[in-house]
Amino acid sequence: MLQNRRGDPVRRMLRLRHTDEWVGLLVLLSLTAFGAAVVEAGVLHTWLQPASRLRIVLPQTGVGGLAVGADVEVLGLHAGTVRRLVLNEQGDMYAVAEIDQQADAFIRHDSVATIRRRYAVAGAAYVDISRGKGDRLDWDYAVIQAQTEPNVVDTVTRTVDDVRARVLPILDNARAMTATLNGIATDLRGGKGSAGRLLTDDALFRQAAAILDQLHDTLDRLRPLQAQLAAAATHGNAALANVQAASADLRRATPQLPAISRHAADATAQLPALLSQTQEATDQLSKLLQQLRGWWLLGGSGAPKPAPQLLPPAAVQP
């Protein structure tokens, strides 16, 4: 046990003799790892990258509350800061802003810088630059034009003024019309004009009431006729059904019509000849009968007299 106690100090001395080296090595390793992390995170890149300088020509009407240190935003993102406001001898004003280089690609010749207030009518002024699609700016001397966003209060005031300018004449006209209507109503009430007489004289209304009574009587008299019309319509429907049935029969018979017509035409063509032959036969028969009547063997007395042309006088009727 004593031997064990003698061997421990030795080992402890061996261990303490390299402690400083080991700590120094650990510190160096830590510093190296930190530096690598910083490089990897790009912090240095950001620090080392120089900002672009943009000149924003301000409107002649004023800077709209823009001040040094105001933000510059592109697409709603913070892209820079106004570093300086310059007023030259010609009276032109411009602001010099430092723009992050990552926003350079969005700011082009057709980009528009608008000076706004953070809360529409209040708050700090800032510059909002729209995204451009034109040519890239020459960032050695980049210039864009700025405009001031119309003040909402001014817009409202102008709108109210405009509305007032338009409404007031209308009100005046309405007032004049009201006065006119008032005069007309007064005249009507006083019985002036045809309409006034119409309102004040009830004879016309009495006549209208009488006409309505007559109309009512007429309608009462027409009511039985309506029932008769309904009955007639029923009969008409029945007749129409009969007509339809007859049409159907006629349609079925139609194919036979050409043959019937042909036969009728043939028969008709023979009628004149048949009629002539019949007349001739009848005439001959009549002559034969007259001759027989005059034959002495049948009690006749010679040649028959010809048929008279004149009707008997008794045929003449007064």
Binding site: Q309, L310, L311, A315, V316, Q317
Partner: peptide
């Protein structure tokens, strides 16, 4: 002529009837 007069009389009688 006689037939013309007779036909005229008959025609007039028929129309009267």
């Amino acid at each position: 002529r006689a037939a013309i007069a007779a036909a005229g009389f008959d025609l007039a009688t028929a129309r009267l009837a």
